[in-house]
């Protein structure tokens, strides 16, 4: 467990910077530092939190914000499913804790190490996960403490920091040329729906579904012609 605790530190440093920035933004929207700490502790999903807080801040609508944030979290179905071997021999209560403290970074590190060293397992996952969730809670609440103490930054275009974060997160999800069509369709449809007056969170989910189905249809057509 100690090995996992220490090995994740470089990745945790990156998450801390991102968490700090998220904390500043959340405080500017009106969340107290302890509310941010609570959210980071019980939700523990970086991109999902940033999306939900941004949607809530700009539209003030809870269900739409949760829908957008939760949809983004669906990738954890696959992430947690891939851990079934790692978690096979641990008791249920440890499993229930391990799935909560598993994030992108410590999952990826555990799987990468395990590929070379089969002794890497649940203890490593949990050690690195404990580091990640602690760093996430501390960095986001520290950001919120600072963000609550400084004047309104919205006038300086602070909201755009969210847009830039989304652009960077999309970049990390780029999967080569097959991504072009679904992303282009999603962009145009979402933009059109928002311009037409639809609530942003619904427009995002609907636009994304149209993009995903475009990709599915193209794949199906290719299989037919092949």
């Amino acid at each position: 467990m100690k090995q996992g605790f220490l090995s994740i530190l470089p990745l945790a440093a990156g998450a801390a910077l991102y968490g700090f920035a998220f904390g500043v933004l959340a405080a500017q929207i009106g969340f107290p530092w302890w509310g941010v700490a609570l959210m980071s502790g019980v939700v523990h999903a970086g991109s999902s939190q940033i999306v939900a807080v941004e949607q809530f801040g700009s539209h003030g609508f809870v269900l739409g914000a949760v829908l957008a944030g939760a949809a983004l979290n669906l990738r954890y179905l696959g992430i947690i499913a891939s851990l079934s071997e790692v978690l096979r021999d641990v008791p249920l209560r440890v499993k229930l804790l391990a799935i909560h403290i598993t994030g992108d970074e410590n999952w990826a590190l555990t799987m990468a190490r395990r590929a070379h060293d089969p002794t890497i397992g649940a203890a490593f996952l949990i050690g690195s996960g404990l580091t990640m969730i602690s760093v996430w809670v501390i960095s986001t609440s520290a950001g919120a403490l600072i963000g609550g103490a400084i004047p309104d930054l919205e006038g300086y275009g602070l909201g755009f920091a969210f847009t830039a974060a989304f652009i960077a997160m999309a970049r990390a999800m780029w999967r080569g040329r097959r991504t072009v069509l679904p992303w282009a369709v999603t962009f145009v449809v979402t933009l059109g729906l928002v311009q037409a007056g639809m609530g942003a969170a619904y427009a995002i989910v609907l636009g994304s579904l149209v993009g995903v189905f475009t990709a599915q249809m193209r794949r199906a057509r290719r299989e037919e012609t092949a």
């Binding site: 991109s47 999306v51 941004e54 700009s58 957008a68 949809a71 983004l72 669906l74 990738r75 909201g159 969210f162 847009t163 989304f166 652009i167 997160m169 999309a170 999800m173 780029w174 999967r175 991504t179 679904p182 992303w183 999603t186 962009f187 145009v188 979402t190 933009l191 928002v194 942003a200 427009a203 995002i204 989910v205 636009g207 994304s208 579904l209 993009g211 995903v212 990709a215 599915q216």
Partner: peptide, 15 residues
């Protein structure tokens, strides 16, 4: 495909 599309949708809605 869904996570990438959601991110792109978020960018579109904020622009």
């Amino acid at each position: 495909d869904l996570p990438g599309c959601l991110m792109v949708g978020l960018v579109a809605s904020s622009l």
